[in-house]
Amino acid sequence: MSSSFHVAVREVKIGFRNPWAYSFMALFALFMLSLLLINAQGYATGYSGVTGTMLNLVLYLLPLMTLTLGSFSLTGDKEDGNWELLSTYPLGTWAFLLGKYIGLAVVLLVIVALGFGLTGLAGWIAGGGFDFPTYAKLLAFSVCLALLFLAVSMVAGALSRNRWQALTVAVAVWFFTIIAWPPVLIASLGMMPYLWIKPVLTALTFLNPAELTRLFTVVKLGGGSMLGPEYYDWILWIRKPSGTPAFLLVAALWTSIALGIAHMLWERGRRRV
């Protein structure tokens, strides 16, 4: 555990020396502020045009940021020989990956906190912005999204040999989960028998952290009725207070499985070296 802590601390320190972290931070803050400016007159509460746009823009930017930061960090260690050096210490793969995950999570959460902090403060000063429950839900959405995609980025990093490969994998994962998801599913599920569509779609949604988090947030923002009668039970279930721990459980399961896969891939690489 203490070795995990050391890896995490090192990761945070390297993270804040990394110019990438700062450029992403600037990008995220800038984009949050511009979003606030676009909706200068609008007041955002619940699921509305402002929050919908915000959800989508966060979905575009944050997963890509997370995937590149995470996978670059892992492949960077491979490329720069840090991992070979660390291998000479009594450090297990689990401790290493967990430390990496925690350290990177801290860096990402600081980026998110900065962006949201600026928006919250600027909105308050400008006399517009978000009401607190909506703001808190959007923040929770961003945090969940970052943490889930960070787990995916661990897999991407473990899979790749170098930063270039990692970039390819990261962009591919991002494109597939964010942009190509509806087109691919509509095309493939369209060929299935009508009655299969909903169950298959529901099951597949659990495989996509972006969709899972987005839908959970939409329902929690009060927009569940938008998903139509097909998902009535789901909406009711998520809206209950017990929906939140259930979602967190799913997210935790998701993260553990992804880290498990990353661990497996990393171990395979270790034997190969």
Partner: peptide, 19 residues
């Protein structure tokens, strides 16, 4: 349709300070 209120502003300040 109220203002965003001080809660959001304070939360923002807190997040910013923490970061």
């Amino acid at each position: 349709r109220g203002q965003s209120g001080s809660a959001t502003g304070l939360a923002g300040l807190l997040l910013l300070g923490g970061a």
